[in-house]
Structures are given as structure tokens and as C-alpha cells.
């Protein structure tokens, strides 16, 4: 589905993205962990570990990230550009891509 991707490395506590930034990319964790924090930046609402993919609903919804995400420990991720996902959707029959976009808007 998505071939062009880039590896990124974050230090412990470094932000991957901040609440309010537009979601143009989605990610897969290669090693380490990503914590998605609450509005105050205190509680981890969600944690993503090696092998987990995240951010597809936000990218499809073409909206901003609702929360800030930071690395827990040294973390390596693969970054996927939204354009590849949109290209894959464009290759689908319209009703299927419409359905997927509808699902994503429920995020």
C-alpha cells in the first residue's frame, strides 16, 4: 500500500507531533514507544509500541492531531506520507474510498 517511507529517531521525551498540528503523516513504531498525552500533557491516553501503526484516521480526516505525542525512551518510527494513502484510496472504487473516508471522519 505505502512504499515510500522514512525512518525517524526520537529522544526520550521528544515530541513527534503537537496538538493542533495538521496530520499529514501516519507512523509505524519500529522500536521504543510513543505516548499520546492528554491536554495537560500529564496522562498517557494511548501508547503505541513496536509493530503498531497509528494516525491513519487523522490523516484520512485531513484534520489536526487532537493530542500531543512524545517518545518514551529512544524511539524509532517509520513515517508514511499521506499522499501514498490517498493514492491507494484513489485506486479503489469510489464507493469504497467514500466509505473509508466516512469511517475516518468518525474519529
Amino acid at each position: 500500500m505505502v512504499q515510500n517511507n522514512e525512518e525517524i529517531r526520537l529522544f526520550h521525551g521528544e515530541a513527534l507531533f503537537r496538538a493542533g498540528q495538521m496530520a499529514h503523516e501516519f507512523y509505524m513504531v519500529n522500536s521504543g514507544a510513543i505516548y499520546v498525552l492528554d491536554e495537560k500533557g500529564i496522562i498517557a491516553l494511548k501508547q503505541f509500541f513496536a509493530g503498531e501503526l497509528f494516525g491513519i484516521p487523522e490523516v484520512l480526516a485531513k484534520g489536526p492531531w487532537a493530542n500531543t505525542a512524545i517518545a518514551n525512551g529512544v524511539t524509532v518510527l517509520k513515517r508514511f506520507d499521506a499522499s501514498h494513502l490517498f493514492r491507494s484510496l484513489d485506486e479503489m472504487p469510489t464507493h469504497q474510498s467514500d466509505f473509508i473516508r466516512h469511517i475516518a471522519r468518525l474519529a
Binding site: M1, S97, I100
Partner: peptide
């Protein structure tokens, strides 16, 4: 691809 992607989202 459509079904697994829908389920995953």
C-alpha cells in the same frame, strides 16, 4: 484492501 483498511481504522 478496502475491507481490512476499514476494519483497521
Amino acid at each position: 484492501m478496502a475491507w481490512p483498511l476499514s476494519c483497521s481504522i
